[in-house]
Amino acid sequence: MRATARVVAEANGRGGTRLTVLRGESPLLLRRTGPDGGAGLTVHLVGGAAGPLRGDDLSLRIEVDPAARLDIRSVAASLALPGPPGRPASRLRIEARVAAGATLRWLPEPLIAAAGCDHRAVTVVEAEAGATVVWRDDLVCGRHGEPCGQVRTDVLVRYAGATLYRHELAVGADAPGWSGPAVLGSSGTGGAYGSVLLAGPPVTATAAPAGPAASPAHGTAVIMDLAGPGRLATAVGADIRAVRAALDPLCERLGEPPEPQRDQAMATA
């Protein structure tokens, strides 16, 4: 199955955000959910079919114009499944462009690598100087009690013309040592990984302490200052609950418009 989706957000001239393009096809369906309550618009990915399955080739393009604020979430976890044998790996390519003064928050539900899947997710984010990006990705290594399928994620985040963050993660039978003590430490079955990247002005404006986070149940997490203008929180756990316990509190208010009486979420984490 091939599908493309595109969303373009721009400032509406009254301090809010409007969508000039919102287009998708199954299984990449996009729905605007709720009005602009002052913190920007929210669009949900609503799965239109099971998958991704082998052979799927999905492409999502996100554009956030100057001063616009857009959140993208998903209604449910996406489940990478085996699909017909012999087909090439399923692919999801996400390209995002975030203009100066704009905010994009990508806060989807986890990707689950079901046994036998072969999935590749490629993310390219290009943010102009002065843009704010919050980028969350969670990965669950197999459904309950089953071996993990093969998933490769490949993330490139560029900020102000320079590469800020470049990361690949491979899990499954073809990735040596992926479940071992250097990578995810999940001993073959189960295990979850999550990360949230924050790039842009809120990072430099927030005197948040980096370093190992308070240890969530059955997991371990850390907040790291990147070499460039950004910060990354990473969590590894025996299951997704441990990862969520570490990362959800960080994401709740990240990238929201600054309010003087509010602490930034990462500052209190």
Partner: peptide
């Protein structure tokens, strides 16, 4: 750009 989350976390700790 293959990353190893536990190497990052362990190094910070």
């Amino acid at each position: 750009a293959a990353g190893a989350p536990l190497l990052d976390i362990g190094a910070e700790q």
